[in-house]
Amino acid sequence: MSRIILCLITFLCPLAKAEDPLNPNKQWWDEEWWEKGRLTIPVNNTVTIRHTSYTNGDVEIPALIIRPDDNKKYPGILFQHGRRGLDDLVVRHAKRVAARGFVILAPDVFSARFIEKYPIEHDYALESDVNMGVDHLLSLPDISSDKICLYSHTRGGYLTLKVAVTKKRQNKEVACYVSYYPHMQDPNAPEPMQVYRYAKEADDLVIPALIFIGEKEQYQRRRSIETAVKSMQANNRPVELFIYPGVGRGFDFRPENIRTFADDLAAKDAIQRAADFMSHYLQ
């Protein structure tokens, strides 16, 4: 009987917006689309890629500069790869960012130190290599912004976190932090720290941050990310976490033979949100 009454109440009462357990604050809600039918028109640029390098002491770090194929100046983004290195799939993601109207510097820090793809241990020297990339990016003549944003995924999220906080670049040369399913813990920390704790540097990240994960993210990674974000939000840090339903790790660059429609929906939404976010803080 109570179930019947509940169904009647649901039918007769005015409809309310459904709750979203993954993103309870409904950051994704678009009133302009829902009420007026307006779709966001993305910025699309043809991009060009050129090779460059910069040094950290006696180490030369190869890098790519990816930018719109014109003579205009654009805001600067340091794009930091993760454990898989700067391979073709990851470069495609960097191209998608550049096509939104940014000059991308993508350092290949593994090649600089002869590190194979998918390393287990973390080489702390890489943090300085990425840090020097900030200076190189800001020295480029085609940068329109006096600050840059850090953009990363997987272990690159930890590297850029250390650059922002430990290297003291936030609110100086670095205006914002964007990362896809970042590794929010020192990769060399013991296993319990990997699962149940997060890098203490996250609590000291004060610049605006935007983080993306999939609902099916690996448990040991998702737990540390969500715990870090909750702590940051409790401390009134300007951080947003988006959780995309139906997708897991790698939704932004999974190859064609295993890619799904949900992967594409999440990737397109995330890239547009990231572009709007970074453009706002690099004005």
Score class of each variant (00 low, 15 high):
272 Q>E: 13
20 D>S: 09
23 N>K: 11
139 S>V: 01
53 S>V: 02
17 K>S: 10
142 D>Y: 12
253 F>N: 15
142 D>T: 10
219 Y>R: 14
61 I>M: 08
58 D>F: 07
206 V>R: 15
76 G>H: 05
44 N>E: 13
277 F>R: 06
273 R>C: 04
142 D>K: 09
111 S>N: 11
184 M>T: 14
180 Y>E: 15
82 G>Q: 04
178 V>I: 14
200 K>I: 08
174 V>L: 05
124 Y>M: 10
228 A>H: 04
89 L>G: 15
213 I>V: 14
76 G>A: 03
115 I>D: 02
164 A>V: 03
118 Y>S: 14
114 F>S: 14
176 C>A: 15
37 G>Y: 07
71 N>A: 12
204 D>V: 02
208 P>S: 05
74 Y>N: 04
78 L>W: 01
109 V>K: 07
196 Y>V: 04
275 A>E: 01
115 I>P: 04
199 A>S: 15
5 I>L: 14
63 A>N: 11
5 I>M: 11
121 E>L: 13
243 I>R: 04
237 R>P: 12
49 I>M: 05
14 P>G: 00
165 V>G: 10
145 S>D: 00
41 I>N: 10
135 D>Q: 10
213 I>H: 07
132 M>S: 10
228 A>L: 03
183 H>S: 14
207 I>C: 15
130 V>E: 03
35 E>V: 08
74 Y>T: 02
213 I>K: 13
145 S>V: 00
69 D>V: 00
84 R>M: 07
108 D>V: 03
158 Y>Q: 09
97 V>W: 05
121 E>Y: 12
16 A>H: 06
8 L>W: 01
247 V>L: 03
63 A>G: 08
36 K>A: 07
36 K>M: 07
2 S>E: 11
234 A>R: 15
278 M>F: 01
266 A>D: 06
257 N>G: 02
182 P>H: 06
75 P>I: 02
246 G>H: 08
159 L>M: 12
154 T>L: 13
26 K>D: 06
32 E>L: 06
218 Q>D: 09
167 K>V: 01
188 N>D: 06
122 H>Q: 11
281 Y>K: 01
170 Q>Y: 00
93 H>A: 01
113 R>T: 12
196 Y>G: 13
230 K>H: 10
46 T>G: 02
2 S>M: 08
152 S>H: 07
94 A>P: 01
161 L>M: 09
282 L>D: 07
164 A>N: 09
94 A>I: 00
65 I>H: 11
16 A>L: 09
6 L>A: 08
39 L>I: 09
211 I>R: 10
102 F>D: 02
124 Y>W: 10
24 P>F: 00
268 K>A: 08
111 S>C: 02
160 T>D: 14
41 I>G: 03
191 E>G: 01
186 D>I: 01
14 P>F: 05
160 T>W: 05
65 I>Q: 12
88 D>A: 12
231 S>L: 06
179 S>K: 09
162 K>V: 10
58 D>S: 13
208 P>C: 05
174 V>R: 09
73 K>L: 09
220 Q>R: 14
262 A>K: 15
60 E>T: 15
13 C>A: 09
213 I>R: 14
